[in-house]
Structures are given as structure tokens and as C-alpha cells.
């Protein structure tokens, strides 16, 4: 049931991606962007419905295995992108973000999606609180990674005086940097809450706030990278390219924390 709804969401996301790419290559400004936006909004709502359906079928917050995690992760990315679009009117960036949502969803559907009984250690009200905050934080960092790459491309073009296609169509440096700043602050807040709620839950479940499990360690490394970045931006004006590079570094650290630990390093967090 829920996987069928998810498949529906996937199809609408694909259509939205198609129109976003069309919007990028078309000369008419935002003629396809509106269609793409409408499709994205619909896909997002259908996607929420699939998560809610799974919640009722399984009886627990469906963020407990790889299929559920990736599906929920892509939902957070789509949701955060909708928020960014509302504030900055950057329809054109859909061509960058939506393909990412789509790829993650493909991986999600490729993972086994059968509903299994919940491991007792996860059976806690901390499950939704900890996972939702952490996932939203990670989704924000992922969006900022792609925004940073876009920034670096546009910046390079302007510095080297090539007034090319990418520069004409993408948002201005100031807008991209400002989105990045927002990502940095919000992502940091969510990551911090994720870590705090996680450690409270850990003290309840495992008896210790912090046990240097690989996931905990990497989340701390990620947290430090973003903390340094935020400090330097406020104190000595690290902005633009420096911010972009740091966001990319932070993103890779987050990738290790998010995927690497589960698939490679093992430890207390490897449920997926």
C-alpha cells in the first residue's frame, strides 16, 4: 500500500524533474518552472501520504531501515527545497536539487521494503524525535552542498570573465551565498538538537550519554566543521567561496556519518 503510494510520488517527482530540466534549458523564463513547481508540490504531498500510510501499517515511525530512511531523507530534501524556493524564488535550482531527490528515491525503492517487527531498542518515543531532527539537518546540508557547487561554478565564471550560460541562468552570487548561510544556521541547529536528543535517548537505552560509537564520532566531527564555519563567518567574514568549500567538506563528513557508518563501519547505530 505505502510502497505503491511511494511509487506514485516517484513518478510525479520524475515529471517535475523533467520540467525543471526543461526550464533550465528553455529560453522562456520560468514557463516550465510553474508546471515543475506544481508537480513538485503534488509529489511532496503524495510522498507524505506514503510515509503516513506506512506509519499506520507498521505501527511505528518508519525511519528504521535503509528503505524507510532513504525515502524519508528524500522527503526532507524536497520539503526543504520547497521552503528555499518560497523565500528566494529560485525555481531554476530545481534542475540541480530534484535529480538528487530522484536518485535517492531510486535507491530507497531498490532496498527491501517489507515491514518487520521493530527491534526493542528502537521502541521509544525518542525514535521520531531524534531521527526527524537529524534527518532534516542532514537534508539541509545536502541541499547546501549542491548550492555550494552552483556557487563555485557561477563564481568561477564571473572571476574568469566568461559570461556563459550557467551564469546567465543561475541565481546571483549574493542569493546563493545567502541560501548557504541559511542552510548553515538551520542545519547546525537541527544537527545540534539531533545530537542532544540522541544522547538523551542513548543514556536511556544504552545507559551512557556518549559511547564513541562511529556514528556519534562522525556526527561530532561534522558538528565541529559547521561550528568552525559559522564562527569564522561571523568573526572574520568567511563568505562566498570559503563558505562553499567548507559546506562541501561538511557534507562529506555528513555522508560518512549518514551512510558510511551504517554500511561500512558498523557500531551501535547499524540497524539498517
Amino acid at each position: 500500500m505505502d510502497t505503491r503510494i511511494l511509487l506514485g510520488a516517484f513518478i510525479v517527482y520524475s515529471l517535475s524533474t523533467f520540467f525543471y530540466l526543461l526550464n533550465l534549458t528553455s529560453e522562456r523564463k520560468n514557463s516550465y518552472g510553474r508546471i515543475a513547481h506544481f508537480l513538485l508540490l503534488s509529489a511532496f504531498i503524495i510522498h507524505i501520504m506514503s510515509v503516513v500510510a506506512r506509519y499506520f501499517i507498521a505501527g511505528y515511525t518508519p525511519i528504521t531501515n535503509s528503505h524507510e530512511a532513504l525515502s524519508f531523507f528524500s522527503l526532507c530534501i524536497a520539503g526543504f527545497f520547497l521552503y528555499v524556493k518560497k523565500i528566494y524564488k529560485v525555481e531554476i535550482l530545481g534542475a540541480v536539487i530534484l535529480p538528487v531527490v530522484l536518485v535517492i528515491l531510486i535507491f530507497a525503492t531498490a532496498m527491501p521494503s517489507d515491514i518487520r517487527p521493530l527491534p526493542p531498542v528502537l521502541n521509544s518515543y525518542w525514535l521520531p524525535i531524534h531521527t526527524i531532527f537529524s534527518f532534516i539537518g542532514n537534508a539541509i546540508f545536502l541541499v547546501s552542498f549542491f548550492i555550494s557547487i552552483t556557487y563555485l561554478i557561477v563564481e568561477k565564471g564571473l572571476k574568469e570573465k566568461r559570461f556563459s550560460f550557467s551564469i546567465m541562468r543561475f541565481p546571483s552570487l549574493e542569493v546563493l551565498d545567502s541560501i548557504n548561510y541559511r542552510c548553515m544556521s538551520y542545519g547546525f541547529i537541527f544537527l545540534t538538537i539531533g545530537i542532544i536528543t540522541g544522547s538523551i535517548w542513548a543514556s536511556n537505552a544504552w545507559g551512557a550519554y556518549w559511547s564513541w560509537d562511529p556514528k556519534e564520532t562522525w556526527s561530532l566531527i561534522t558538528w565541529i566543521i559547521y561550528a568552525v564555519l559559522i564562527h569564522n563567518r561571523m568573526a572574520i567574514g568567511w563568505r562566498g567561496r570559503k563558505t562553499a568549500y567548507m559546506m562541501i567538506l561538511g557534507f562529506f563528513s555528513m555522508l560518512v556519518m549518514f551512510f558510511g557508518v551504517n554500511f561500512l563501519l558498523g557500531g551501535l547505530h547499524s540497524y539498517m
Binding site: 557561477v154 559570461f163 551564469i167 546571483s172 552570487l173 549574493e174 542569493v175
Partner: peptide, 11 residues
């Protein structure tokens, strides 16, 4: 062109 470039930098 000067205007267009500054829009690309500052929005």
C-alpha cells in the same frame, strides 16, 4: 553589461 554583471553578483 556592467549592470547585468552586477545583477549576477548582487541580485
Amino acid at each position: 553589461m556592467a549592470v547585468e554583471l552586477s545583477k549576477k553578483i548582487f541580485g
